[in-house]
């Protein structure tokens, strides 16, 4: 027990890979907290889940194209998949949740089929649950760029996205193109999802995106408080989950999600 406590508070400092992962979490958390508030406002939780599932197909395409690092294929596929989802949803021939369900399952299945063609799917199974402790110092550069992109996007587009999520026709009457706003937003989410999927994992990603915002929503009464609290909750659970998982030898992503879930239960009990 003493070793566990020592590792949580002090022991981790001796390990370069934990220090790097901690910096990674400090970059991830504000991004997820911020994007999560926009996802929850727009009731797009299924949307980001579908994007996460589509990552496997992006990986498979990268592998089939002979790329050593499939990131570029994932990013391009993610943005194209997001735009296609928006377009199909906007046509309104079937309900949004049905469309997302079909796309999500199809993208996941296609990825698994393509990756298992040569019988070595196990090699890619780390994409399912991710590993934050595998973040390298070099990975911090694209993560910092992604955080900058999300901050810039939020500063420029948060207001428009808020109006579109309230009522698309109302937004249109104010000179906003709702479909363009939606495509733009999902492209940003797709970039963040594809960039982080190898460390966060397909199965954990949506929880990490949505739960901080869901917690903050329970205990906030203005947009300012909502976003600030979502970021603080994402940071606190991210850092605590990483260090606890290091000390306990558990999956870091899953540990963070469990902490976020506890946080959600507490905030739900405190909801006004």
């Amino acid at each position: 027990m003493m070793t566990f406590i020592y590792d949580v508070f002090i022991g981790w400092q001796r390990y370069q890979f934990v220090r790097v992962a901690l910096v990674g979490v400090l970059l991830f958390a504000p991004m997820y907290g911020m994007l999560g508030t926009m996802i929850v406002n727009g009731r797009m939780a299924f949307f980001s889940d579908s994007l996460g599932h589509s990552a496997l197909t992006g990986v498979a395409l990268g592998v089939l194209l002979g790329m050593r690092d499939p990131l570029l294929a994932m990013l391009l596929f993610g943005v194209a998949f997001a735009a296609l989802l928006c377009w199909v949803k906007a046509r309104g021939k079937s309900s949004a949740d049905t469309t997302l369900g079909v796309f999500s399952s199809a993208a996941m299945a296609l990825g698994v089929v393509l990756l298992s063609l040569r019988g070595d799917f196990a090699k890619y199974s780390n994409y399912l649950i991710g590993d934050l402790l595998s973040i390298s110092a070099r990975d911090l550069i694209p993560l910092s760029a992604a955080l900058g992109l999300v901050a810039l996007y939020s500063a420029l587009r948060y207001n428009r996205l808020l109006l579109v999520s309230a009522n698309a026709s109302l937004a249109r009457s104010r000179g906003i193109n709702p479909l363009a706003v939606e495509i733009e937003f999902t492209a940003v989410v797709a970039l963040v999802v594809m960039l982080s999927i190898r460390w966060v994992g397909v199965l954990m990603l949506n929880a990490m995106l949505v739960i901080p915002a869901a917690c903050a929503r329970n205990v906030s009464d203005s947009v300012r408080a909502y976003i600030a609290r979502a970021i603080v909750i994402a940071l606190a659970c991210g850092v605590a989950g990483l260090l606890l998982s290091f000390a306990a030898g558990t999956s870091s992503g899953a540990t963070i999600v469990l902490l976020l879930t506890v946080c959600y239960a507490v905030t739900l009990a405190c909801a006004k």
Binding site: N159, L162, L163, R217, N218, S220, S222
Partner: peptide
């Protein structure tokens, strides 16, 4: 329960 006030909405 959406944490968006009238002031937030109009300011947006």
């Amino acid at each position: 329960l959406a944490p968006i006030t009238v002031m937030d909405f109009l300011s947006a």
